[in-house]
Amino acid sequence: MTASAETAALDIRGLSKAYRIGHVRPTRKPALVDLTLSVSAGEVFGYLGPNGSGKTTTLKILTGLVFPDAGSATMLGSPLGDRAGRQRLGFLPENPNFYDYLTPREYLDYAGRLFGLDKAQRQGRARELLEKVGLTAFADVALRRFSKGMLQRMGLAQALVNSPDLVFLDEPMSGLDPIGRRLVREMILDLKAAGKTVFFSTHILSDAETLCDRVALMRAGRLVAVGRLSDILHIDVTHMEILVTGIPESALDALPPGSEKRRTMGERWTLHVPEAQLGAVVQALEKAGGRILSVQPVRQSLEEFFFKEMGTPTKWDLAD
């Protein structure tokens, strides 16, 4: 599903970028090739791909850090680089770094000034955001003393200083401990609940699975797939998963063809059986004295899709 240009918070058309490599005999290495995609207002959109797949280049183009060789994009209806668009934009770069001589409160005040917020607004936003990212106790500590995770939280706070309608987050979970990651997930869900659009790049697939309405999958600068996770992953349920206990292994020998069995824990077995045979298998299991703990459809995970469609795990930097 693609959002129409009218309702799109982000509309990218044929964006391409190549970087010059080498000095003696320079060549151009494509980093992004003819990218076209739209993100609807209010969506949480996951931008997925391994290192070097063009995710950061896309975000750098959208935030004005590099210039595209071809193509165009509009953000909230404004063309690339337009001030009106940037007024409503929030951006967390990958591995963010800030002025180490400032404190978080001072930095947020500075960021607020660039958005034209008055003093009372800046103070209010700084207080609110520092509370939200759990840095209130460090509000007046110089940023040079911050750990990577604390800088990441600071990055999130500064990205939201203007209450943006469109938020770009480049690897927002990077460097965060489990508590920090949960905080980011909650913040993304809060933004969605407030009707904001979130476009975030990640290679942590479980986060994308949990948070995203739609995802785009990138490989070597090219868009491989885009859509709802349920569209991209194979959701035609051909098999069902049954978790059963209290049954001897011999009773599982008569499972229908195409089934699989796996001992999971103690006396528990996980069975994958063809959907059409579910009723018969359940009956047979109960007859043999088994207790069925759960029955659910077998769905391909995003990670399985990645490995299957895009390469082997060794080629990927799949954190988590």
Partner: peptide
């Protein structure tokens, strides 16, 4: 070098 410029360039400062 330190990339402290990155978050600023996305803000409405030319």
């Amino acid at each position: 070098e330190r990339r402290s410029l990155y978050p600023l360039m996305a803000k409405p400062v030319t």
